[in-house]
Design a protein around this nucleic acid. Sequence first.
DNA 1: GCTGTTTTAATACAACTGTATTATATTACA
DNA 2: TGTAATATAATACAGTTGTATTAAAACAGC
Lengths: 214, 214
Amino acid sequence: MPKIVDEQARRERIAEAVWAIASRDGLHAATVRAVAAECGLSTGSIQHSFPTQAALLQFAMELIVSRASERINSLAALSADKADASRPTTADSTAPLAIIADLLLQLLPLDQQREAEARVWAAFSTAALTQPELAPYARHMDSLLESFCLRCLQQLASNSQPNRQEPIEQAIHLHALLDGLTLQLLANPSPNRRRQAAQTLEHFLRSQTGAPAR
Amino acid sequence: MPKIVDEQARRERIAEAVWAIASRDGLHAATVRAVAAECGLSTGSIQHSFPTQAALLQFAMELIVSRASERINSLAALSADKADASRPTTADSTAPLAIIADLLLQLLPLDQQREAEARVWAAFSTAALTQPELAPYARHMDSLLESFCLRCLQQLASNSQPNRQEPIEQAIHLHALLDGLTLQLLANPSPNRRRQAAQTLEHFLRSQTGAPAR
DNA sequence: GCTGTTTTAATACAACTGTATTATATTACA
DNA sequence: TGTAATATAATACAGTTGTATTAAAACAGC
């Protein structure tokens, strides 16, 4: 008898409105009314899907992590395919390096869409520093990224000279590098900086394989 | 005839209250009333020193950059002294590396005070992403850090084997590494992570001097 | 179509915000 | 000490916030 609506899809649509506002104006601007206006609903509908604003923000952050997890997994699967495809033909270690580099470059805010995503993430992870209920999601994302870094580096290490650094240290280094480059690109998203950031990342990967520096 | 008060000192005291609140509860909690309570003044006194809240926040961020600039300069001066002192006695290149490493480690949130400072900085630089009037300060801080990184690396390069990377790229790398490690330590300030972060930084410096990896 | 349930909208309300206004207290100089 | 200029405090006010309440609308099954 009742009106039926896809509650999960509705919640995700609302969460995406939160993202849009957080990216454009900051998380503080994601008031219930602003979110409602952003996705063309009334505040009452928002309240129907989320009992409180805190629950809404928490869900929005949870969904980010979930989406990021999916994307990272699909990236990893994609890279495995490409690596398998390239290995029979070329025997040297440069092909996997280019593949891994392309992969990791997709985590940097080098275009408008990924810049918007990174801005959302910056807003949420800063909020997590002072809102304990959000902190677990930030830590989860951190560990996702770190294990992805580790996997990437292991694929590189499999055909390179003896390691100069423990794999875990390498992964921490790569992870920090990605985060730091992301921050810099958000503060200064000029084409120049984007090119430099990409070069920096590629150079790091090259140095980790023991390949010639330039 | 009037009551005279050190207006500049008063403004700095108020700005420091903003920092305390931003570090503890987030920048959104730095309301005029909260700031007044934090430094034991009335809202009227705050208004006397700052016409609007926006002016207050802008000054607080400006003061951070100014203080950071002073500290970086004093660190650089200190390092120059130590390097001069160590050069006549030891001829190898390891002494400067240790000095530079100690220097850069002081920029990471490895103790409670620097963690608080980093939290404040994270709050402000995130706010700068959506508040154009704050963005110049973030860029200024960025360029300060980057030129400091460059100077540090040049001191290392002066007695090392031929560079494997352009100095500017090296500096970008170091800068991103510092930012990224800082972020990770804020999200997860465990002793373990602190040790790993320090090791990562030291390893990077060693790799840039061409010194043996371990 | 009718009905009962659910979704949506509209409104209300108390708490909090930045800021303006007003009055009081404080102090340097005559 | 008296007074003028300033600093501080107290209060007021309009706007915004989250959320509770209420009424209207929409729709699945009969």
